[in-house]
């Protein structure tokens, strides 16, 4: 009972953290979505040089830890004269990182679409660009929803490392509260519950979204 009272007493402060976590996630995810389409299209349909650059980008961001990327942006870039706040650095790191992953999901989805779809589009007199935009992407984006929603949840969870460069979010608030009250376990158990609830809500939302966008007979065989 005492524990519940403690949790209620720290809830307002943690609530502020939750809001920042959600804002950070939202910004990073939006950035990642745009970036992913550009990277995937660049890698698949771009000229040789663009394609190679996109591939390197993806390799780098998928092959190194997110925390290292965050440090590079926050501690490294200033030596090149680029200064970002800790919050902006975090959004940039999560967005740039997630974009690389989602680009690969998107590429996989595009490649799983029947070649005949592109041919049919071209046969109708569409340009390649139009066929990609009007025929390929609308299908690929549906296919990519399940892995993409996983990635959004990943991003939400990984925003917790933003506090390691001093950004204000759920985890940093928790750390402050825990040290102030000397109640680490009590605080972090509550934080764990909050994260579980957030993940659960997101999962339910994505399940709903998937159902809503479903086209009959056009399911992902898993």
């Amino acid at each position: 009972m005492e524990l519940i009272t403690y949790w209620i007493s720290i809830l307002p402060e943690l609530g502020n953290g939750v809001i920042n976590t959600l804002i950070m996630t939202f910004l990073a995810v939006s950035m990642s979505a745009v970036l992913a389409v550009i990277l995937a299209m660049g890698r698949m349909y771009g000229p040789r040089i663009i394609s190679t650059l996109c591939k390197w980008y993806i390799e780098f961001f998928r092959g190194t830890p997110l925390l290292a990327q965050l440090f590079i942006i926050y501690y490294g870039l200033p030596s090149w004269g680029l200064n970002f706040s800790s919050f902006t650095s975090a959004v940039l790191a999560f967005g740039l990182n997630s974009g690389a992953y989602v680009a690969e999901y998107l590429r996989g989805a595009v490649q799983s679409i029947d070649k005949g779809q592109m041919t049919a589009g071209l046969a109708m007199g569409m340009t390649k660009f139009t066929a990609i935009r009007k025929i390929i992407l609308p299908q690929a984006l549906r296919f990519v929803i399940p892995p993409w929603s996983n990635d959004v949840i990943y991003t939400l969870k990984y925003t917790s490392i933003a506090f390691l460069v001093g950004a204000q979010e759920l985890m940093s608030k928790a750390k402050i509260i825990a040290s102030f009250n000397f109640r680490f376990i009590d605080t972090f158990v509550f934080v764990a519950i909050i994260y579980l609830i957030l993940v659960l809500l997101l999962t339910l939302f994505f399940n709903w979204l998937e159902r809503k966008l479903k086209i009959p007979g056009f399911e992902i065989k898993n």
Binding site: I153, K157, T159, S160, I185, F188, V189, A192, Y195
Partner: peptide, 18 residues
């Protein structure tokens, strides 16, 4: 489900401090 849903950092702190 629980260990896939929790941020790694939260699990780390729970073990470390707990």
């Amino acid at each position: 489900w629980v260990f896939r849903s929790l941020p790694a950092l939260v699990i780390l702190y729970l073990w470390y401090f707990g």
